[in-house]
């Protein structure tokens, strides 16, 4: 078996493995975050672990403490929503109606205790009117 043959064979196996990985990622989604609906569809008892949740900050729900160390808001998903309380550094541009990812863990009372908020970029870049 020459080096060329070996390289080809190795290439095939490695490509197959990578495809397999891609398929796994696509089917079960190697989750960086869960949506609010997926999270709430789980049994309440299994919600008590660390997770990142993605959703929109609900209108008229954002309350930011004056020293900007904590905030509370409603995280709105496609069908359901969830109350979130977040302690820790907040991004400067946190506003209502924005897509965010909250990191933290669920509480049995239906409250989500977050400690980190990431704001997601808009899916369309619009020119500012200023």
């Amino acid at each position: 078996m020459t080096t060329t043959h070996k390289l080809c064979l190795g290439g095939i196996v490695i490509t197959m493995a990578t495809t397999c990985l891609a398929y796994m990622g696509a089917s079960s989604s190697w989750q960086f975050y869960m949506t609010v609906d997926e999270f709430l569809n789980q049994a309440p008892t299994s919600r008590d672990y660390r997770v990142r949740l993605s959703g929109k900050v609900g209108h008229d729900s954002l309350r930011i403490a004056t020293d900007r160390t904590s905030a509370s808001f409603t995280l709105v998903g496609a069908k359901s929503h969830l109350r979130v309380e977040c302690r820790g550094p907040l991004p400067d541009n946190l506003t209502e109606g924005l897509d965010v990812v909250v990191e933290g863990h669920g509480k049995n009372s239906g409250l989500f205790q977050g400690d980190k908020v990431l704001t997601r970029c808009a899916s369309k870049y619009d020119a500012s009117n200023l």
Partner: peptide
């Protein structure tokens, strides 16, 4: 390499894929 290129399409993440933008942009 393919993993980096396809990461935003195959896996769920916070990095945008290719957002729409103004023609000038």
């Amino acid at each position: 390499l393919p993993l980096v290129i396809m990461a935003t399409r195959w896996f769920r993440g916070i990095h945008p894929t290719s957002p729409e933008m103004e023609p000038v942009m």
